[in-house]
Computed example of a mutant assay.
Amino acid sequence: MSAAPSPAPPRETRQREVISRLLQSAEGPLGVPELHARALNELPRLGVATVYRTLKLLQEQGAAHIVTLDGENLYEASGRGHHHHFSCRQCGRVYTLNTCPVALPAGTVYPGGFVVEAHEVTLYGLCPACAPR
């Protein structure tokens, strides 16, 4: 008995290419409304449902993942290595920080038996554009 053929990968669409590229080039994770607004510059007829479907597919393929900040799901491209985020309290933009402010290796054991597997840090304040000069 032969194994069933594996399903063909989803075909690359213009929508998927644009959304993927926008995630790759973003300074930080994006919410669906912002991602949709940016994509409309190139795809004026793009519906928000297509953005959601594309993000789901990109997650299933491992090309994107969810970042939850303040209860909101944002999306960013995968494969950026260990990093954290900065959220501007004035303009609301979220930036990726490529440095880690916490020296906390996996396997660290805290008093009480808490074993660290990973960590996430979000810093809050004013971005360079919003900070007083």
Rank of each mutant, 00 (worst) to 15 (best):
M1D: 10
L58K: 01
L69P: 07
G31F: 06
V32Y: 08
P10D: 12
A26Y: 04
Q61W: 05
H82P: 09
G28W: 04
P33R: 03
R133D: 15
L57R: 13
S25R: 15
R16C: 05
R45T: 09
A37M: 08
E117T: 13
F86M: 00
R38D: 12
H36Q: 00
P128K: 11
Y75S: 05
Q15S: 15
G62Y: 09
A106Y: 12
L22Y: 07
V18R: 13
V32A: 11
P101Q: 06
L40Q: 06
G31H: 11
A129P: 02
Q90E: 14
P10G: 09
K56R: 15
P101W: 02
A39Q: 05
P105M: 11
A26G: 05
T68K: 10
P44Y: 07
R16S: 08
A106C: 07
Q61F: 01
L22R: 02
P105D: 03
L69K: 04
L30S: 09
Y95F: 13
V115H: 09
G125F: 05
T54W: 11
P29Y: 05
A106G: 12
A129E: 12
L43T: 02
V102P: 02
E120M: 11
T54R: 07
A106V: 06
G28Q: 06
Q59Y: 02
G107E: 03
E76D: 05
S25N: 14
L46M: 00
G79L: 09
R80G: 07
R93F: 04
H83K: 07
L123R: 03
V32W: 12
A77E: 13
D70R: 15
T122G: 12
E60A: 05
Q24D: 12
A49K: 13
T54H: 06
Q24A: 15
V115F: 11
I66Y: 00
V32T: 15
R38S: 04
E17G: 07
E117V: 13
V48W: 00
H84C: 12
G47N: 12
A129I: 11
H85I: 00
L55A: 04
P33N: 07
L57M: 09
A37G: 11
C127P: 14
P111D: 04
E34I: 08
Q24M: 12
Y95M: 08
A64S: 13
R80T: 05
I66M: 02
G62P: 02
A8V: 12
Y124W: 07
R89F: 13
G31M: 10
R21L: 14
H83W: 07
V51M: 04
C100I: 05
L55Q: 02
C130H: 08
A64Q: 09
V116Y: 05
L23A: 08
V67P: 02
A64L: 05
L43I: 10
G125V: 09
L23S: 10
R16G: 04
L40W: 05
A49R: 14
L35Q: 08
V51I: 10
F86Q: 01
G71W: 02
R93G: 01
